[in-house]
Structures are given as C-alpha cells and as structure tokens.
C-alpha cells in the first residue's frame, strides 16, 4: 500500500465538526468536474491511491477514468462499501426487507423468500455476494487492489459477534476480485481480536488514530499498545481529529508507530494536499 491514501469525505459533504462546512463542501463539489479537478491535483502531487465510498457519484468518476486511461495509468482505487447513509435512510423508510428488495438485483429476494421457507446459510452468503457485486459494478476495469467494508457495517457485525460473516467476506473478496480485504472500524482492538480468532491473519485495518484519542473506542492506551505489539497492517484515519489537531503535530504523533503503513486523509486545496502529503512522507518510516 502507498503511504498516502487520498480520501473522499470532502467531496460528499462529510464533516465531523460542522454542518455548515458540510454544506459549503456540497456546494463546492456540486459538479463531477470539481471532484476530478481536485483528484487531478492530488495525482500531480504524486498521490496514486484514492480510497472512496461506493457513493453513486463515484460511478461518474470511474467513467471519467476509463475514458482517459493514459491520464490515470497506475492509479488505484480502494473501494469502501457500502455507502452507509443510502441504506440507513432506506431502512428508516422501507424496513430491512424493503431495503434488500430495493437494492438486490431483479427478483432475487422474492426467489429466496418463496414459500416462506427459512433462509439457509448459503442464501445469506449469496445475498451478501450479490450486494458486494452490485456495489463493485462501478469499478469494472479499474485497479482495486484493496476492498474495504465501511465501519458501520464492520462494527455492527463485530458487535453482534457474527464473525463467520467476516470470513465469508474475506474469502469472497480474494476469490472473486483477486483483491485484499480491508476493514474500517471505530473499534480497532476488539476487531483485531475477533479477526485473529477467525483465522484472518495480518489483516488490513483502517481506524481512527490521533493524538487526542478521538473515536479511539476503549481509550488511547489500548490503541497504542495494539499498534506497538500486534501483527496487522494499520491505516490511520481521522488523524487530524476532524480538525482539532494541527497537521504537523498530528502526523508527528503517527511517527511513533512504525507499523502504520498508510495514512488516509482528504483535502480540497492543492496547498493542503501538498502539506499533508509531505508531512506523512517525512514522519512515517
């Protein structure tokens, strides 16, 4: 993995501190051209990986990349699925079954549910595979060497103790997409325990890692111990704690943990992208 992974929160009005800033971002990135222009300046600065959710608008960005193969040669995307709010809003209105019907292709759900028979384990797996395929469709022809499950889903499965689902997901990503499975979580120490118990060795895990302990569930001590002692491939996100820490201080903190392979960050201006990229390259060994 590259040391620097470019994120997409800024494009989709995700701001963990301010709804007003979110709105300003939504206005700034109203057009796909505005997103592409920022991505292009990141590429010009030598960033080669874009880590993004499976938001509908990413499909347009993928089209643009396929149409300009020379410009995006060697550029990689790490998809993170699903775009959770799409499903959360749908579940509020349609319920769980209604949402599955809405997002599964064709009449698949009704076929499974025919005659009110119980769902077998293989049906549940099949449904998960179909949902993954539906989310992955937009990336056809694009290099996606690592594929992530978003934290809401990871942490829900983790919380419910359904660790076999991680194993099914893990195997399917390797088998079908010839890619490395990755996990985004807000509960790093617990997730690592459960993945190891399930036989998933040295997993790629993306989690909040920052100097003030923001969204480091269970506390900083156990996170720091995990980063120092355990075998896994950490990606640090929320390193600026949504803007509460200055970039220099924030990235310097990450330098304490040589195991951290990559840092995920998003920014909208070339100046900020350059500054953060240089800090990461200087502090990460």
């Amino acid at each position: 993995m590259d040391k620097v992974l470019f994120g997409d929160n800024q494009f989709f009005a995700v701001n963990h501190l301010s709804d007003e800033k979110s709105r300003a971002q939504a206005i700034r990135f109203k057009t796909d051209e505005a997103i592409i222009s920022v991505l292009d300046s990141a590429i010009d600065l030598g960033i080669n990986t874009f880590m993004c959710t499976t938001h509908d608008r990413i499909a347009n960005i993928c089209d643009h990349m396929r149409n300009n193969p020379e410009r995006y040669k060697g550029f990689k995307i790490y998809p993170c699925m699903p775009y959770a709010h799409k499903y959360v809003n749908a579940v509020t209105e349609l319920g769980i079954i209604g949402t599955l019907k809405e997002y599964l292709p064709g009449n698949i759900f009704s076929t499974f549910a025919k005659g009110g028979l119980a769902f077998a384990k293989k049906d549940v797996i099949k449904m998960m595979e179909l949902l993954i395929d539906a989310e992955m469709k937009m990336f056809k022809g694009i290099d996606t060497p690592v594929i992530f499950i978003q934290n809401v889903l990871t942490d829900m499965i983790l919380g419910m103790g359904m660790k076999d689902i991680f194993v099914e997901y893990h195997n399917y990503i390797i088998k079908k997409y010839n890619a490395e499975p990755g996990y985004i979580t807000m509960n790093l120490p617990l997730l690592l325990d459960v993945l190891e118990e399930s036989g998933i060795k040295n997993p790629i895990i993306c989690s909040s890692i920052n100097k003030i302990g923001f969204r480091m569930s269970g506390g900083m001590d156990i996170y720091e111990k995990t980063l120092a002692e355990r075998e896994f491939r950490p990606i640090a996100m929320q390193v600026l704690a949504a803007g509460a820490i200055r970039p220099n201080e924030a990235i310097e903190y990450l330098g304490k943990f040589p195991r951290i392979e990559s840092v995920l960050f998003g920014a909208s201006s070339q100046g900020h992208i350059r500054e953060t990229k240089e800090l990461i390259e200087n502090h990460l060994t």
Partner: peptide, 11 residues
C-alpha cells in the same frame, strides 16, 4: 471533540 467522552464500543 472537546465535549464528548470516548465509549468502549462505538457504533
């Protein structure tokens, strides 16, 4: 970030 305590499990 100033006003919220960490929890043991986050969802």
């Amino acid at each position: 970030t100033d006003l919220t305590d960490n929890v043991d499990f986050y969802l």
